[in-house]
Design a binder for these strands. Structure first.
Length: 483
RNA sequence: GGCGCGUUCGUCUAGUGGUUUAGGACAUCGCCCUCUCAAGGCGGAGAUCACGGGUUCGAAACCCGUACGCGCUACCA
């Protein structure tokens, strides 16, 4: 347990949807905060106006909520360190950038994109690392004022001094060292007046009293820039933790070209939030025991950054699916009934089913489905009379005496009054005994008659769910068809 | 190209110098259970711990090098 209460943040850009990698980052932040009685903060990094997508912020918040990751401070609910949307904090960035300029740690740059491109090409041709050449650093104060007064467009750049070692510690990766000579004079303030990620991130993390920066590994290379900024401002650096990346099957960064990456895609496919969260937690972290099934409380209890892995993890849909089935089966019958009802309302079936009937369906199928919607897909015969039959099963199971047996059996059922599942069980056993046949002789044809297929839940369950009158009808149907 | 990070069964991983003939989970295969299909139980196959050097009585574990992979290298995050 960390002694001081940590404050961590998840800081996505609202570019459309929540990526599963983002969900994992958010989750680790959340787990770390909750485990240590700290705060989990949501901050929207919308400084790139060209990539802004309408509705993305509310979608992000809604998706986070679906996953069970409620934030303590952030947009809508507020907090003591707001606003939590960067586009509403422009004056702050401006103020701090001026400080940096005054101390010589940053400078105005009026270079055109054409010039920037040209020097970049030249450097690449010479196999040099592309870097800004500090051309505008030599501008005098008067020149700068004149250009600004003249309405020339400018950016503000970080003044990186060469030949310095920039060192920092990362909880996951240990000590990391960069030479400042490889670091570009990063643009801090763009010509449209918006800050870049690097400036906004550092200013906000400091102002919001963020203690631990937990983010994806793609940020590791720019961390020295951030460290420099903290040092220039004379601010205390947060503790860094760079998480391993989530990978496709080909071990490349998880991308939407190859698979689903949006959390909402998984939600729409019927994955349970607790399963997705459980799965994603295990991608790069383990408690060290052999437990794989966790609910969110257990994750909070066991989580620690020290046990996060260093190497990237391939997203394996098979394992996610297995976990989904595990979580689904741990639910109570009424809980699953609610899920089924939601799915059922999306279908075109007209049969009216009571909760009690749905409950019977769930109990008969819970070991046989990995997703709630599979119950409906696998058992159309729960909702309508079969019109055709699986001929493979027919060939295998329909014997010469099947019509006679079914006809006789139909009479037995007719005699039953309000039969229960146990009554069906009893009557079939008795029937097999009296006719001196194996159970299979009656069960298989009957299953085909009643469901049209050869697989499914226990036959007594099907009979009970379908109901006596419908069972009689279905037996007659198959007899008519194959007499 | 430069810089950084990584590398244990197909996949997620356990492993912090001897308890390791490298353990578990998913997937896969077989058997049992059984009215079918699942679930469950049992079992099998699957990793020369990327490679090469060291250090050590002893290395998957520590050090160095190489290879490979990934990330960054934008007025994107």
């Amino acid at each position: 347990m960390i002694s001081e209460k940590p404050r961590v943040r998840f800081a996505p850009s609202p570019t459309g949807y929540l990526h599963v990698g983002g969900l994992r980052t958010a989750l680790y932040n959340y787990l770390f905060a909750k485990h240590n009685n700290g705060k989990f903060i949501l901050r929207i990094e919308d400084t790139d106006r060209t990539r802004l997508v309408e509705g993305a912020v509310s979608n992000l918040i809604e998706t986070l909520k679906w996953a069970g990751l409620e934030y303590d401070e952030g947009p809508i609910i507020g907090g003591n360190y707001g606003p939590y949307i960067q586009s509403e904090r422009l004056d702050l960035y401006n103020k701090y950038v001026k400080e940096l300029i005054a101390s010589g740690r940053a400078y105005y740059c009026f270079c055109s994109t054409e010039r920037l491109e040209k020097i970049r090409e030249e450097q690449q041709a010479q196999k040099l690392q592309p870097k800004y050449d500090k051309h505008c650093l030599s501008l005098s104060n008067d020149e700068i004022q004149a250009k600004i007064a003249n309405g020339e467009s400018y950016v503000v750049r970080l003044n990186v001094l060469p030949d310095e070692k920039i060192r920092f510690n990362d909880i996951i990766r240990g000590d990391v060292e960069f030479d400042s000579s490889v670091i570009d004079d990063q643009v801090l303030l763009k010509s449209d007046g918006f800050p870049t990620y690097h400036l906004a991130n550092v200013v906000d993390d400091h102002l919001m009293k963020i203690t631990h920066v937990i983010r994806g590994e793609e940020w590791l290379s720019s961390t020295p820039k951030h460290v420099l900024l903290y040092d220039y401002f004379e601010w205390e650096r947060p503790i860094f933790a760079h998480l391993p990346l989530l990978l496709n099957k080909d071990r490349k960064k998880l991308s939407k070209r190859q698979s689903d990456v949006a959390v909402e895609d998984f939600r729409d496919k019927g994955f349970l939030p607790e399963a997705l969260v459980n799965f994603v937690a295990l991608l790069g972290w383990t408690a060290g025991d052999d437990v794989e099934y966790y609910n969110i409380e257990e994750l909070v209890n066991k989580f620690s950054l020290e046990r996060v892995n260093k190497s990237g993890a391939v997203f394996d849909l098979d394992k996610l699916t297995w976990l989904n089935a595990e979580h689904l089966r741990k639910k109570t019958t009424p809980e699953i009934v609610e899920l089924i009802k939601k799915e059922y309302s999306k279908t075109t079936y007209t049969k009216v089913c009571s909760d009690e009937l749905f409950a019977k369906m769930v109990d008969s199928m819970r070991e046989r489905i990995e997703f709630a919607h599979e119950l409906i897909e696998k058992c159309p015969y729960f909702f309508e009379t079969p019109t055709d039959y699986d001929m493979e099963v027919f060939k295998k199971r329909w014997k010469e005496d099947s019509p006679i047996l079914l006809t006789k059996f139909k009479e037995e059922i007719s005699k039953l009054e309000n039969p229960t599942k146990e009554d069906y069980d009893h009557v079939i056993h008795k029937f097999a005994e009296e006719n001196e046949i194996g159970m299979g002789k009656i069960i298989h044809p009957l299953r085909l008659a009643v469901s049209g297929v050869g697989v499914g839940p226990g036959l007594f369950d099907i009979l009970d769910i379908v109901g006596k009158e419908e069972v009689l009808l279905r037996i007659q149907n198959i007899l008519d068809k194959f007499k």
